[in-house]
Design a binder for these strands. Structure first.
Lengths: 155, 155
DNA sequence: ATCTGTGGTTCGACCGTCGAGATATCAGTC
DNA sequence: GACTGATATCTCGACGGTCGAACCACAGAT
């Protein structure tokens, strides 16, 4: 029995601790670093798009962005397409910071996969992609989730 | 390029959302469910052991346990070996609850790995174990982490 | 022009976490 | 047996993070 689920639980727990340490060393909160990493990979985004990605409400993102902007890591730019909204982008300094953060993380992950056949690693990456997609879908399927957890579908 | 690191980031993000939904549906906080799952896999533990496992301070665990005990999911038992400490154990009701939680999670993970050769899955599990171990070690190695992040080892 | 929907922010309240301090106990040492 | 230093837990006060509700500006449809 492979029991991937248990290993995933461990990975998530380890990542929690890892992110916490990283954030504290940088004088940031975990949510801030999360937003920075998403901005690095997705490019400039609106606050609500970020909120959906990170899984919190837009109100929370506002507070995070205030901090990040004050620290000079991001800027809010006017959105030429829609004057209601703003685009959040990394500043050069913020970009340099999150580059370092993710580079260190990548190196640490590589340390755990160093002696593994690259072909296998491709397969691992594929599977992780599938799993994260399924988990994301399920996380947004509250009725189904409630049913499988054995809850009354009350009200 | 396999880019396991990016996939891992996605998995962690998905798991965050997943845990949030699960907890909210059950009327619990995310930290409570985390503690419950650890208790399921590790058996009865002291509050400080739980705190180390979860990555928070004992003070925080105290509050969580108060809630969980009030809800009837866990009990604090006297520790016959050490009268300073207590052992936290799942009640039958709590055990049934966390069994459901983890069973649903396992099923959702399986949904993403269904069409994969079991031999490959064993390999994936092994790699995930390695990665989580390395990440955990690093999370506790603050000096090394600070150095790699390019921080002054100030003060 | 009007209406409905959406994006962003502010405000007030609550939860979760932490650090410091207090108490009880343990494991040694004298 | 008494003393010392370390450990386990809890309490308390403070702060950060999140949420829901309300608000305004604007977009898009009619």
């Amino acid at each position: 029995m492979s029991e991937i689920a248990v290993r995933l639980r461990d990975v998530v727990a380890a990542s929690d601790a890892y992110r916490q340490t990283t954030a504290r060393l940088l004088g940031l909160g975990v949510p801030e670093t999360t937003i920075l990493v998403h901005l690095l990979h997705d490019g400039p985004r609106t606050p609500t798009a970020l909120a959906r990605r990170v899984g919190v409400t837009p109100a929370s993102v506002t507070a995070q962005l205030d901090r990040l902007e004050l620290a000079g890591h991001v800027v809010r730019q006017a959105n030429p397409r829609d004057r209601r909204s703003v685009l959040v982008a990394l500043t050069p300094a913020g970009r340099a910071l999150v580059d370092r953060i993710f580079a260190v993380f990548r190196a640490d992950v590589a340390r755990g996969t160093a002696d593994t056949d690259p072909a296998i690693l491709d397969e691992v990456a594929r599977i992780l992609g599938e799993v994260s997609q399924h988990l994301t879908e399920r996380a947004h399927d509250e009725p189904g989730m409630a049913r499988d957890l054995g809850l009354q579908t009350a009200r």
